[in-house]
Amino acid sequence: MNLIETQNLRKVFKQGEVEIEVLKGIDLTVKKGDFISLQGTSGSGKSTLLSILGLLDSPTSGSYFFKGEEVTKLSEERISQIRNQQLGFVFQHFFLIPYLTALENVLIPTLYNKNSKQSQKKARDLLALLNLQDRLHFKPAQLSGGQQQRVAIARALINEPEIILADEPTGQLDSRTGEEILNIFQKINDQGKTIILVTHDPKVAGFARQSIILEDGQIVSQKLTK
């Protein structure tokens, strides 16, 4: 079964009287284990597409099936549940909560199970896997950009989601650190996680197995890179 399937997905923003069509009929299929890069210049619609795929926004028309469920028909509660359980987000600006430690930030998506032994162990294991075992109790401000993004990746992985959605995850990092992060994504993908990564940088896109290029709201190229 496809994890994600969209048919003729359109998104129109209204600015006063003017309508701007940001996505013009996207047909996309994502299978388990895919590592897809969504590439495009600024304004190409890649981030909007990622927001819709991440259930943070809804399409103006077209259909979107997430593991066979028609997303536009789901309740708000169910959408929150999917976002929490089946999607992991990694953002360009990390978005860590400044007053929580690395460990606490990782535990944020576990909600009420934060204190369970299982969650605690998993969070520590993930941070150790990402080489942050000696930074568990550091606040974000005490961590480097790369370390912060690794904490964010651990946070995205804590609930063992089906798909990781990453929006310009290396945008704020120098190239060496960026490469480290992308290697982590590759490792995660090797372990079977599906990843959709948005970037404008062809080098970054090169880390994915499949590259989709968007231009002016349409997919203009879709090819396997590896």
Partner: peptide, 16 residues
Amino acid sequence: KKEIGLKLALGYPKEL
């Protein structure tokens, strides 16, 4: 705002 938006994005129920 950022923190609350993030929590909502990570699937926190509104009631929470």
